[in-house]
Measured scan of single mutants.
Amino acid sequence: TEEYEYTDEQQAREAAREWREKGYTVTIEEHNGRWRVKTG
């Protein structure tokens, strides 16, 4: 599992979409105004 943090929701969603296209399972969670994208 890798985790990436973004301050911008749009960036987080874009990144998540790219990971999904590569076949990863992706979770996005908002935490204190930051967006965490977890792949695994």
Results as ranks from 00 to 15, higher is better:
residue 28 I to H: 01
residue 26 V to M: 02
residue 10 Q to W: 13
residue 29 E to P: 00
residue 29 E to H: 08
residue 37 V to S: 00
residue 33 G to S: 04
residue 36 R to N: 05
residue 16 A to R: 02
residue 5 E to D: 09
residue 27 T to V: 12
residue 22 K to P: 00
residue 20 R to E: 13
residue 32 N to S: 06
residue 35 W to E: 00
residue 23 G to M: 02
residue 14 E to P: 00
residue 11 Q to G: 07
residue 8 D to T: 14
residue 4 Y to F: 13
residue 12 A to N: 00
residue 32 N to F: 06
residue 4 Y to K: 07
residue 14 E to D: 12
residue 13 R to Q: 12
residue 17 R to M: 09
residue 1 T to S: 12
residue 6 Y to L: 02
residue 9 E to S: 04
residue 19 W to V: 02
residue 36 R to Y: 15
residue 29 E to T: 13
residue 5 E to G: 05
residue 3 E to V: 15
residue 10 Q to D: 12
residue 33 G to P: 00
residue 39 T to A: 11
residue 32 N to R: 05
residue 17 R to N: 10
residue 7 T to G: 11
residue 7 T to R: 08
residue 40 G to S: 15
residue 28 I to F: 04
residue 19 W to K: 03
residue 14 E to Y: 05
residue 33 G to L: 03
residue 17 R to A: 11
residue 40 G to H: 15
residue 27 T to K: 07
residue 2 E to F: 15
residue 25 T to F: 13
residue 3 E to F: 15
residue 19 W to P: 01
residue 34 R to S: 08
residue 20 R to V: 11
residue 34 R to K: 14
residue 32 N to K: 07
residue 36 R to S: 08
residue 5 E to S: 08
residue 24 Y to G: 03
residue 8 D to Y: 06
residue 18 E to S: 12
residue 36 R to L: 15
residue 14 E to V: 09
residue 34 R to D: 02
residue 31 H to I: 14
residue 30 E to Y: 15
residue 1 T to A: 12
residue 16 A to Y: 07
residue 22 K to S: 05
residue 12 A to C: 05
residue 9 E to A: 07
residue 15 A to F: 07
residue 35 W to K: 00
residue 16 A to F: 07
residue 27 T to R: 06
residue 2 E to L: 14
residue 27 T to Q: 09
residue 7 T to S: 13
residue 28 I to Y: 03
residue 28 I to D: 00
residue 22 K to D: 03
residue 20 R to M: 13
residue 38 K to P: 01
residue 35 W to I: 01
residue 5 E to Q: 07
residue 18 E to R: 14
residue 22 K to H: 05
residue 4 Y to R: 08
residue 25 T to L: 11
residue 23 G to W: 02
residue 8 D to K: 04
residue 21 E to G: 06
residue 31 H to M: 10
residue 5 E to V: 11
residue 40 G to Y: 15
residue 38 K to A: 07
residue 14 E to A: 13
residue 9 E to Q: 07
residue 27 T to H: 09
residue 29 E to F: 12
residue 4 Y to E: 07
residue 26 V to W: 01
residue 1 T to H: 13
residue 1 T to R: 11
